[in-house]
Design a protein around this nucleic acid. Sequence first.
DNA 1: GCAAAAGTGTTTGGGATACACCCATGC
DNA 2: GCATGGGTGTATCCCAAACACTTTTGC
Lengths: 232, 232
Amino acid sequence: MTKSPYNNVYAAPVLTTDFVVFSIQNNRLMVLLIKRLDEPFINEWALPGGYIPAGETTVQGSRRIMAKKVGLDILEDLSYMEQLYTFDMVARDPRGHAVSVTYFGCLRTVKENQLRPNAAFFPVDELPPLAFDHDNIIHYAHKRIASKISYTNLASAFLNKEFTLTSLQKVYESVYGHKLDKRNFRKKILKFDILNKTEHMETGKVQRPARLYKFKSNKIEEISEFAKEAQD
Amino acid sequence: MTKSPYNNVYAAPVLTTDFVVFSIQNNRLMVLLIKRLDEPFINEWALPGGYIPAGETTVQGSRRIMAKKVGLDILEDLSYMEQLYTFDMVARDPRGHAVSVTYFGCLRTVKENQLRPNAAFFPVDELPPLAFDHDNIIHYAHKRIASKISYTNLASAFLNKEFTLTSLQKVYESVYGHKLDKRNFRKKILKFDILNKTEHMETGKVQRPARLYKFKSNKIEEISEFAKEAQD
DNA sequence: GCAAAAGTGTTTGGGATACACCCATGC
DNA sequence: GCATGGGTGTATCCCAAACACTTTTGC
């Protein structure tokens, strides 16, 4: 833990991080919360988070904190993460001025018994009362992910390598919170030219087997408009 | 300056803020820089910024710092501002771990002699060598403002109350860095239904007088798609 | 054969793009 | 009268949205 040469001059605010982990379960967008074990807001639900000492980045600190508090390795287990916003209102923590650099991330699959017992997922549209300003942070994260999924291939962060077009559509519907038209959705997503048809079919269901697709790119990236221009 | 109860347990990183002030001069997007008077990077150009003590928000701190270092009151003089991103790499400041919560803002008009002598505007596409990771911050801010101006009425932050359509187009061209088609620009911006035609004309030029327009809303807001839906 | 989801096309309206000429003014 | 920027319309293409029926499977 590095001691900063400025601590004598400036009593810096406490630096914290809070993490919004999204997951899709039963076609609903879920958020990971933990039940607080300490004051303030003891026994209330909150985002997982904690303190960042000098010499540690907020990503490193988040990794340490998330491993300890919820049993997730954010670099290994999350299929995507990005910085969200920094909340710094003086009154947001009753203990003193705490500046929180927040992140959101996507969890593809939740392994059995991986999570600590005081951690649980809640539907983003049916959250319990939350500690601090965490409802605000989650709403901000939800807005961001809904926007991001519309101009990137971020939906892949919630899917297995191969998936049906219907399951892809359900990811969008879960994140947006409303239904989409099947034919228009398929036309649009195929037009984007970000998917490859595989030779595999989904079987074992009492219905016509569905074609499996996969994303062309394994990286999360913007849906490129360059394809058009490159034709010239 | 509040002393945080956690300082004994966690040596927090230093908290700083850096501010990207945009302005348009001679149809070029400009960024406000100051020449550093101290080590490190003495005599190099940098974004204005400084330290945030506990008990002060980054906006309050920016206001204090910007008043002192460049002579701008960000709450009075800027026509828009928003938080940009938080940069927290441990090595970004050679003195020690400094986490910077950055902002960008828009300056409508630069008053004569308002700026400190070591502050100056530079074209965003012709920046001098910069201290720290400030070139990175400015590129990030440029991307953000170019995106934002396309789906909000943020262009108003660079214009007087009444303006010609050509001057509005030049704002977009300056921010995007490329030319736009006059007829298509006018069709599009008028279709958005965010402008009101005034009864005034711009006179005194050796050319046909131009109609003056003003924005319907004084607030910076997204260009609404509700107009459409409201018709049903 | 029936329940369940897969798969598929057309029409219509609106927005994006490309493109060129006449107009009003000050000097 | 000329230099300067102001102001305007049309044709084409693509995308968005609305909308319903047939196909394939497991049981």
